[in-house]
């Protein structure tokens, strides 16, 4: 349903703050942890998620009428994280070109286990799929919506990623 002008104007700033804060309290931590797993950096993840909530606040009069406002926030955070990683990647490649003997720096994970190394080795899309499904607790359909993939593609990434990670965790346990 397309909102009318009156619907927009009736929302007070207090209502906006309360609505966004409620969403923040309910979803911030899980989303940050999922994106931390996907990116390997809790700072970058927190920065992306906070930026997404700031945008949600600024545009709340519009996005509150969306079917899934949290999905919108999640997509904004993921896009922000991707942009940051692309920027960092370009910077890193430029540095590598300048310093010939410098090797690519592995991602800094919160844990030094084999599973972390395996996770880092997964394709970025697969990492995000695993993180959103297992850490953020989304359904296959929600992951598909968040990453703008088909559900079949999400299932493929989950299957592939789970097989690889299971092996890594089993090796780490031994």
């Amino acid at each position: 349903m397309v909102p009318t002008v009156n619907e927009f104007s009736e929302i007070s700033e207090v209502t906006v703050v309360e609505s966004v804060e409620a969403l923040f309290r309910a979803h911030y931590a899980r989303l940050v942890r999922a994106l931390t797993l996907a990116s390997g950096s809790s700072e970058a993840a927190a920065d992306a998620v906070q930026e997404a909530f700031v945008k949600a606040h600024l545009h709340w009069r519009r996005i509150q009428h969306y079917e899934d406002p949290v999905g919108w926030i999640r997509r904004v955070a993921i896009n922000r994280l991707r942009d940051d990683q692309r920027r960092l990647g370009r910077k890193q490649r430029a540095t590598e070109r300048l310093v010939a003997d410098q090797r690519p720096q592995p991602m800094q994970w919160s844990d030094g286990a084999d599973a972390a190394a395996m996770l880092a080795a997964l394709p970025r899309q697969q990492r995000l799929t695993i993180a959103l499904f297992y850490v953020d607790g989304l359904s296959v359909a929600e992951v598909a919506a968040a990453l703008e993939l088909s559900e079949g593609a999400v299932k493929f990434h989950l299957h592939q990623g789970r097989e690889r990670l299971r092996g890594a965790f089993a090796k780490g346990d031994r």
Binding site: Y28, A34, S42, S110, L119, Y134, V135, L165
Partner: peptide, 17 residues
Amino acid sequence: GQLGRLSGPFPDENAAY
């Protein structure tokens, strides 16, 4: 559970807010 441990501790919501 294992991925949950890898994703680090829960962030401080109040400070983040």
